[in-house]
């Protein structure tokens, strides 16, 4: 079963941290992949004070089956470093795990690197067979919204 999704296991077009995480998932059997996803769910950092308790200031990720909120900040440095803040309740560990994957993979990258992540990257972790493809769409939605926010925060000048 572990080899079933090798065709989609391409990682050379993913940012380094994401590629490493994808390889880590692929080295595991389906059941162990769920355990790793759970670890990532547990490791999702708490929101900083400026967002905690202020979910209305964040974007709701409607594609997820649980209340997930997202905020993206982009620094004014040369690389336009991206910071990602995600909140999902403990009773939604799968969604938290998806958020954990994206946080671990993308937080701290430059804006261009985040925007270059392929839309279908969520399917590169070999999770479809363990989680079901239907549920994977939540992570696709999260990634899409992260990229859209990065784009919005880096193209304001050009729009004016």
């Amino acid at each position: 079963m572990a080899g079933q999704f090798t065709a989609s296991a391409r990682t050379d077009d993913l940012p380094e941290a994401m590629a490493e995480l994808a390889a880590e998932f692929h080295a595991l059997q389906a059941k162990e992949r769920l355990q790793l996803l759970l670890e990532l769910a547990n490791d999702l950092p708490d929101l900083p004070e400026r967002y905690a308790g202020r979910l209305e200031q964040m974007e709701k990720v409607d594609e997820c089956q649980s209340p997930v909120f997202l905020a993206v900040e982009v620094d004014a440095d040369a690389a336009r470093t991206v910071h990602i803040f995600l909140s999902a309740p403990p009773e939604a560990p799968t969604t938290r795990g998806f958020a954990g994957i994206l946080h671990e993979s993308l937080d701290g990258l430059g804006a261009d690197d985040v925007l270059a992540v392929p839309e279908e990257a969520p399917y590169r972790f070999g999770l479809s067979e363990a989680v079901s493809p239907l549920r994977m769409r939540g992570m696709v939605g999260m990634l899409g919204r992260i990229k859209r926010q990065v784009r919005a925060r880096t193209t304001i000048d050009e729009r004016q």
């Binding site: 769920l34 996803l37 769910a41 089956q65 009773e91 560990p93 799968t94 989680v131 239907l134």
Partner: peptide, 22 residues
């Protein structure tokens, strides 16, 4: 459950997981 991982975060002692989708 709806959430495929919720059982793994903790469950009633002796209970086994049944996933509606899988």
């Amino acid at each position: 459950n709806e959430d495929v991982l919720l059982y793994d975060t903790g469950h009633i002692p002796g209970a086994l997981k049944l996933d509606w989708h899988l």
